[in-house]
Every structure is written in structure tokens, then in C-alpha cells.
């Protein structure tokens, strides 16, 4: 979800206006993904590094996210979307917002449709460190640690490997996003800024992905990737 700030600057608006415009895109993309049959959608809303932004912008984002969560909670429930929040552990997150995250996750926990993971205050490295801590706390012997066992200690261990990462606004970096799960992900970098990103752009990205030849490190290009 990159490019909110630049979107606003191009229109001579404050950066906060860009964040506000992003809300429409978020809802649009959730709906498009669901309609296209995507089962796992993750949005990178706020990274652990985003705390370094100016205090007023962070405050604004917190209030905005809270409003968005509350506004769309009934819709997400009605659409059968299971919502959850990855990260969201920092004490700087306002308590009311954390409560709303909890409430939305509780409310939609039994939904069977798409799983929407909102990475908020997320850092891929931190998740890996947490998994390591959890392994050590459990007293797992070093020889027993496999990729499978390790992945079980990551937050939300049911999350499958990521197939496709879409990074808007032309940025071509990983920026600490779900480092473990993106090991074999395909990447698409549309030039469009996030507030201008629409369902049609999302479908274009999906088509690009379908044409990709996923080899998972192997040689013979037999089939397209099976997302399991």
C-alpha cells in the first residue's frame, strides 16, 4: 500500500489526505480479491519502521485505521471474511485500537470465506525472532528443528506461503514484509500509486501472475504454481 504520501503531494494536499484516499482502495481490493476467488489476502498497512514517521502522521493513521475498522466491520462480517491482525504488539498502539482489532478478529473468527490478514506494526524479522524464542521456550532440541517445525512457531502458522506480492507506486523493495512466507513469491510492481489502484489494476496483476512460470527453484518448467 505505497504511494499515499506522493499521491497527496502531487495534488498539493497534506500527506494525511493520501491516507484517507487509501481507504477506498482497500475496500475495493478486498472486494475484488474475494470476487476473484483469492483465499488469502494480506495487506501491509504499517511496518515496525513506520513508527519513525512524524508523530502527528502516526497519530492520524491510528485514528484513521480505527475509524475504517469500525466502519467496515459489519461489511466484513457479512461478506464472510475472516480478519486478523499480524503484529499489532507495540504498546504505542492505542488501547482502543488494539481492542477494536481484537473485536474484529473475534467477530469474524468463524468466517469461512477469504482470510484477510492486515499486517499492522509488522516486521518480518521480528516474526522470525519470535518463532525462535518460542522454539527455545518450548525446549525443542536443535536437531528437531526443521523448516516445517519452525514455521509452526511463526505468528498465524496456518498462513500458507505467499504466491504473489503486489507493491504499488513502483517501489521495488521487500521492506521486511513476511520474510519467511515470501520465499518463493512472485513480485509485481505496478507504477500506479495506492490511492489510484483499483480492482482492474488488481486483476491485471493477477493475470501477470498467471502467466508467470513458477519453478520453485527447480529446472523443468512444467506447470504453473499450485498454491499449497
Amino acid at each position: 500500500m505505497d504511494g499515499n504520501g506522493r499521491w497527496a503531494q502531487r495534488r498539493a494536499l497534506p500527506r494525511t489526505a493520501g491516507h484517507r484516499a487509501a481507504e477506498t482502495t482497500v475496500i475495493d481490493i478486498i472486494e475484488a480479491a474475494r470476487a476473484a476467488g483469492v483465499e488469502w489476502l494480506s495487506l501491509y498497512a504499517f511496518s515496525t519502521e513506520n513508527w519513525n514517521r512524524p508523530g502527528t502522521e502516526v497519530d492520524y493513521l491510528m485514528r484513521l485505521v480505527r475509524r475504517v475498522v469500525r466502519k467496515h466491520a459489519p461489511l466484513l462480517l457479512a461478506r464472510g471474511i475472516r480478519c486478523r491482525f499480524l503484529g499489532a504488539a507495540d504498546p504505542r498502539i492505542p488501547r482502543e485500537l488494539a481492542q477494536d482489532f481484537d473485536d474484529l478478529a473475534t467477530l469474524t473468527a468463524d468466517n469461512q470465506g477469504m482470510t484477510l490478514t492486515v499486517a499492522f506494526d509488522h516486521g518480518g524479522r521480528r516474526d522470525i525472532v519470535e518463532a525462535a524464542k518460542s522454539l527455545i521456550r518450548n525446549g525443542t532440541p536443535a536437531d528437531d528443528v526443521t523448516e516445517r517445525v519452525f514455521a509452526d512457531h511463526l505468528p498465524f502458522p496456518d498462513t500458507p506461503d505467499v504466491d504473489l506480492v503486489i507493491r504499488t507506486s513502483g517501489e521495488q523493495r521487500i521492506s521486511n514484509f513476511m520474510l519467511w512466507q515470501v520465499a518463493y513469491a512472485e513480485w509485481v510492481f505496478p507504477e500506479v500509486l495506492w490511492p489510484d489502484f483499483r480492482a482492474s489494476d488488481f486483476l491485471t496483476c493477477l493475470h501477470t501472475y498467471q502467466r508467470r512460470d513458477r519453478r520453485f527453484g527447480g529446472v523443468p518448467p512444467q506447470t504453473n504454481g499450485d498454491p499449497s
Binding site: 469500525r70 459489519p74 462480517l77 482502543e96 477494536d100 473485536d103 474484529l104 473475534t106 467477530l107 473468527a109
Partner: peptide, 20 residues
């Protein structure tokens, strides 16, 4: 729990000054 989560989410924001 789900019902009360929904109730909390539907409560208008202005009145949220009370302790959690």
C-alpha cells in the same frame, strides 16, 4: 463474545472516553 465485539464496534466513536 462475538455479540459484544460487534456491539463495541458499532458503538459510535464519540462516546468512547470511558475506561476499557
Amino acid at each position: 463474545k462475538r455479540a459484544s465485539a460487534l456491539l463495541r464496534l458499532l458503538t459510535p466513536l464519540s462516546g468512547d472516553t470511558g475506561p476499557d
